[in-house]
Design a binder for these strands. Structure first.
Lengths: 217, 217, 217, 217
DNA sequence: GATGAATGAGACTTCATTCAT
DNA sequence: TATGAATGAAGTCTCATTCAT
């Protein structure tokens, strides 16, 4: 019994260390980009020896990808939460398809930034990603898509959204442009408040509503 | 007179060299990313010695930034051209605010990619940018914004767009989300054609029209 | 009594473990060379923890040397066997001085290779060998030499070999060059069969006979 | 004209540097083996920066192989010299096939050691040798073989060597076992003088003569 | 202006060895 | 006795930048 406890505690500690490393890496990758963050720096930030990192992640790439997956999972959870929390259809639509991503970009700017730079720099630049990992990313991406598509379908079934709309098209248009707007906004962060005289959240809501209206019967 | 001519010819040659270097850098940056492109590789591609590059650009970052500015200028030109070419207001609106960026992303994928990765990785990551350069970028960015804003204002003045709309808000919403959608599309390029059963151009036009409709009186 | 038995069983187990480690190390050292074989890999192959190896061998070098000694012992046994098995003098001479080494190189290529690379890279390159070990190697080497010398002396006593020959010189000439030829043969293994149109065994026998003839009265 | 001189001087300097690096590497490889010699150590020995080595040799392996080829060339030259210097057939035979290698092992112990450790550790352990290099090694090896074979053939034609002998077999037997004996001798260097009461050169000559006699009609 | 050899800091990664459990 | 996480020195190699020519 005691042995089992020890093993369990050890495995917990190991998981903890892994999380600590991921946390340090997240901050540094965000602050200096993937390429400019050295394993040295990460190790120093966690307070571990350089070699120790390689006990937890076989690669710098693997570390990066692990963060990415972590991020995608968090976004998915956020979306699921939005679905649960909103009964009113319009709210559910707007919150899940647009605001979820926005809030995520505010609450987890590092993860969001990481995920976006992965989009921009695109897969091939990561040297050697095992197909396991790419398929895991694919999997979560698809789940998020399904989630969004089902919301649009619900709208069509309820007679709220025009039945001539292709749910996939709608999702891609709104999700892509919403996410894209967030990225642009992060860069030109003053423009919104200066020129539009509204908060970013209001700006995103306004964007979402405009979309929503255009879908109505 | 002769001296002036010589000077002028020399300065032309110098400008030519600069352009050659930029061209080589553009291709390589795009193909292998900023970090993975070495000055060696650029020099070899232009057929110049490594040290020579430093006569034209004081460091690698400056080369990168120069390309960025070049890109912004090209996009601005494309937008101006769209304005000139389209008399019909709807066309002018859609072409300038959305399709210009899309076409630019197709015709000059290297520049577009560069500009976007700059957005994503954000300015502070470039080591040592003189304020001259940032302000030059700012300048061109603002010009593009003004261009777009004036188009929206034209719509309001013409009574096509609802006068309660804030031109800045409109521009940022449509330009940011359009550009953002293009980035996302580049990454998940199959999704559009597979799920929406339309070409990317049609997709972008559809997105733009949806927006345009939502602005009408 | 019981205690003694326990101790004895324990010591047997310990010896067994030691042999298992040596076996794993042998295969890996041969497959990837000494330097490219990690203690990790050895531990994994035996199914023990890395730290455990250090309970049996105080460091990597000792492991290597242990194998070496093991190899020398095996070669000695092979020679003794050849002496026992051959009554006819010429056969005994040829089999013990030349063919024993050749067969050993075929049957125990790992050990042979290890022993030879030890010859080539020479002792001083191993970091920290206690004099105990070097003297053990010396001891076995001398025993083998004595064995060979006694065979030559037997030939002289029997009047088969010219009495003016110095037995030591003969042994060193034939054993060294025989072993040397085997090493070279391993490297240029095609040359023999291609150019000489004989098997390697035949080649070695031919070499040995040539030598034997030159010694006869 | 001046330019050409400058270029020529530069290329001479470059060649000189290359030789300096090779010289330093040779000593260190010999002293500590390939694996235990670091590029750092080589750089320090030549008095150059680490990175500079990579301007002359793209790899650690390439550096090693360059030395190897250098060594093979030197041995070939030594053999050619022996052929030129000796008119008497027996001398030519013994000097070229056996003593050349021995003298080489004394005069250029580093090269000899390097070449032998290459034999022992065998090609596959060097990571990535371009086929260019392997074929260059092959080329020189074959030339040496041809040289030796032609000497044996000369003996057969002159009626000195029994015409039933296969020249290839003879060469391989004598050259391989001669070289092999030298290696073994280097390791157990005391044995010869202690037990045989002769110098190593005398020992090698004795070995060669024994062989030579066995070939005579 | 143009060259390209030289630099040396710094990147990722490996691994023999130790030591707390 | 056995473990295996942790260490940190050391290894190979890259590359932006400088500077003598």
């Amino acid at each position: 019994m005691a042995t089992i406890e020890v093993i369990s505690r050890k495995s917990q500690e190991k998981e903890l260390r892994k999380q600590m490393i991921l946390a340090a890496a997240k901050e540094l990758f965000f602050e200096h980009s993937y390429e400019k963050t050295s394993m040295d720096a990460i190790a120093q930030k966690v307070g571990l020896a350089k070699g120790t990192l390689y006990l937890y992640f076989s690669n710098k790439d693997e570390l990066y990808i692990s963060l990415l997956i972590e991020g995608i999972k968090l976004l998915k959870q956020k979306m699921l939460q939005k679905i649960r929390e909103n009964d009113n259809y319009e709210d559910k639509f707007i919150q899940t398809l647009v605001i979820a991503s926005y809030e995520f970009s505010i609450e987890q700017p590092q993860y969001f930034s990481l995920m976006m730079s992965f989009q921009t720099e695109s897969l091939p630049k990561i040297n050697c990603i095992s197909s396991d990992v790419t398929s895991e990313i694919e999997f979560h991406h698809n789940e998020i898509m399904s989630l969004c598509v089902s919301i649009v379908q619900e709208g069509i079934e309820k007679g709220i959204i025009d039945s001539s709309e292709n749910p996939f098209e709608v999702v891609i248009q709104i999700w892509f442009s919403g996410t894209g707007a967030i990225v642009m906004m992060q860069c030109h962060y003053d423009d919104i408040e200066t020129f539009c005289r509204m908060s970013k959240l209001e700006f995103m809501e306004s964007l979402a509503k405009r979309f929503y209206k255009s879908l109505k019967k």
